[in-house]
């Protein structure tokens, strides 16, 4: 299946003895937005952290199964850092580097990997900041510290930073959970644009948000993938009673 960018086969994950993901298999289509939903503690975050090999950094973490990016197993055929450059990530809390300017934050991934070409860096900064809709707000002073921006601006800066290395997949872990409604709306419309360049996998605890932004939705519960399908289908007529209970807000 050439249209599937990222394939997860039989993926299980543990923290010490506790299993948090149970043989999840899933194929992410290319250039689509996929929402991962489920109650807290269902393994959403662990799941996407397995997709860019961040899970293995946690003490006691273990993974079994395969994650295949364009035909290559990211665990056996790729180096962890190469994986993370191809599969970018945006976090729950905006985390710009506080010691760097807005400019340096955007190109941190390039500059710190030794790219010094000023003209190229300038171009990347402008194009990525434009892409996340931050250019007009910050272009007057790119030397300002990224930490001085508002929460919503910081999160868009972090998205620009993740995009600067041109990832093919972008993981977003509840990217709007700490933001106000208008910043949330901006990020959501940004997500819909991002899929022109990359496969976007977004965790959200807000089912309405999943319905608004995604093309496909996966529902995880207690480490199991309960249901995966087109978002319209999942939200109109889910097959599994657990999904039904979750999306209608009748869970626990």
């Amino acid at each position: 299946m050439s249209s599937n960018k990222l394939k997860v086969e039989d993926l299980s994950a543990w923290f010490y003895e506790k299993q948090v993901l149970n043989r999840v298999s899933l194929e992410f289509p290319d250039k689509k937005v996929i929402a991962i939903i489920g109650p807290s503690g269902c393994g959403k975050t662990t799941f996407i952290r397995c997709l860019n090999r961040m899970h293995e950094l946690t003490p006691g973490a273990r993974v079994r199964g395969r994650v295949v990016l364009d035909g290559k197993d990211i665990y056996t055929e790729m180096d962890a850092m190469e994986v993370r450059r191809k599969i970018g990530m945006v976090f729950q809390k905006p985390n710009p580097f506080p010691n760097m300017s807005i400019y340096d934050n955007v190109v941190a991934g390039l500059k710190l990997m030794g790219i010094r070409d000023k003209a190229l860096l300038d171009k990347v900064v402008e194009s990525k900041l434009r892409e996340v809709g931050l250019w007009d707000e910050v272009s007057d002073d790119l030397r300002r510290s990224g930490a001085q921006l508002s929460g919503g601006q910081q999160q868009r800066l972090c998205i620009a930073r993740a995009l600067a290395t041109e990832p093919e997949v972008l993981l977003m872990d509840e990217p709007t959970s700490s933001l106000d409604p208008s910043s949330t709306a901006k990020i959501e419309s940004l997500v819909r644009v991002l899929k022109n360049h990359a496969t976007v996998i977004i965790i959200t605890h807000n089912v309405q948000q999943a319905a608004r932004v995604s093309d496909y939705t996966a529902f995880l519960y207690l480490g199991d993938l309960i249901e995966f399908g087109e978002t319209k289908k999942i939200f109109e007529s889910p097959k599994n009673p657990l999904t039904e209970k979750y999306v209608t807000g009748r869970f626990g």
């Binding site: 994986v83 993370r84 990530m89 976090f91 580097f97 941190a108």
Partner: peptide, 15 residues
Amino acid sequence: DIREGAIALGLPKWV
């Protein structure tokens, strides 16, 4: 948070 932001960019540990 900051460290993970850096790790997620695919930077080596020493950098």
